[in-house]
């Protein structure tokens, strides 16, 4: 009698243990989000703000882990190689499309399952406030009159802003010297100090110095004007048809079950719509650009083609 009760007990326990995972809803333990960039940087702060909101909808805590190095290569690789159970999500950034053409990583966007795009920020051609040009055309004229004088700072060799500046020079037919820095901030500092002629980085990166009256924006590489600086016209309005953005989004390793992916996509989308996160975007002047999983996939494929073509044209791609 005693033994039978025990057997029944064990049987019940075993069934219970095996049945539980199938019944429980995802997620039942904390989620890890990989950030390929350093703590405290723009990507990191954005991801932490988003994760904080998403926790409410997932009902689990989210830990942000910074796996940095190799111009984003190490973090992207970690996301790609993570166990595809939905408990590891990652923030993928523009570099996912610029590192493969340089031959720096042996995989590309196709190795990921895209979840959503979060933001997209256009490059803005920014110069010193007291510079003798006020429009893109005057800048181009000046550059043509003074060849080899224009130096444009960017955030790293082959980086998004290097490509943006190259694209601009290519489309306007001017000669410029590209000066790579270790991140956008030192390049902006060098511009404020007068050691460079221009930078073509995103608006959040120059906003403070523009508002302080040290720098001015000559044009944004976007189809629409910026919300914060509506007086600044776009490149297209000034006769140069260039639109160029950096972007950030969330991605999963390949093979995450569809229901888990749907739950994640839904929770992070809701997180993007909370008033607190909207307030955060406003304060940091980041440009929200939500795209769902399918649209983000299409966007990645198109963006990859565009970036590769531009990099080949500029000689930044590995032959």
């Amino acid at each position: 009698m005693k033994r039978r009760t025990m057997l029944v007990g064990i049987a019940a326990l075993v069934t219970g243990v095996f049945a539980a995972p199938a019944m429980a809803a995802f997620p039942e333990k904390p989620i890890t989000v990989i950030c390929p960039w350093s703590p405290g940087g723009g990507t990191d702060v954005l991801l932490r703000a988003l994760s904080k909101e998403a926790e409410k909808f997932l009902g689990q805590s989210i830990t942000v882990v910074n796996q940095t190095g190799g111009a984003g290569a190490i973090g992207h690789n970690a996301i790609r190689a993570a166990r595809p159970d939905g408990y590891t999500v990652g923030m993928i950034t523009f570099e996912l499309n610029s590192l493969p053409p340089q031959g720096l990583i042996p995989f590309d966007y196709k190795a990921f399952d895209p979840l959503m795009r979060v933001n997209a920020d256009p490059a803005a051609l920014t110069v010193k406030k007291d510079a003798p040009y006020n429009t893109l055309k005057e800048f181009v004229d000046y550059a043509k009159k003074n060849p080899s004088e224009i130096t444009i700072g960017n955030s790293a060799p082959g980086s998004v802003w290097h490509i943006a500046a190259g694209l601009m020079a290519d489309k306007t037919g001017i000669q410029v010297k590209h000066v790579p820095f270790d991140g956008a901030a030192p390049a902006v500092t060098a511009l404020v100090g007068g050691h460079l002629k221009a930078v073509a980085v995103s608006i959040p990166e120059v906003r403070g110095q523009v508002q302080a009256g040290n720098l001015k924006i000559l044009g944004v590489m976007d189809t629409e004007r910026d919300a914060l600086f509506p007086a600044v016209s776009t490149f297209k309005e000034q006769g140069v048809d260039v639109a160029f953005h950096t972007w950030r989004g969330l991605g999963l390793p390949k093979g995450v079950p569809a229901d888990v992916k749907a739950k994640l996509a839904d929770s992070f989308k809701k997180a993007m719509e909370t008033p607190d996160f909207k307030e955060f975007l406003k304060k940091t002047s980041l440009n929200p650009a939500y795209l769902g999983p399918d649209d983000f996939s299409k966007f990645l494929a198109q963006n990859y083609k565009d970036v590769e073509a531009v990099m080949k044209g500029l000689g930044l791609a590995k032959k």
Binding site: P39, G40, G41, G42, V45, A49, A185, T189, V192, R207, G208, Q209, Q211, A212, G213, N214, F280, K283, T284
Partner: peptide, 26 residues
């Protein structure tokens, strides 16, 4: 100036911006 002097102040710059404060002359 709104220009961080080292790695920690670069992070602090972000903290200021999240508070809606832009370090610099303003």
């Amino acid at each position: 100036l709104g220009v961080p002097g080292d790695a920690v102040t670069a992070v602090l710059l972000g903290a200021f911006i999240i508070q809606g404060l832009q370090p610099g002359p303003l």
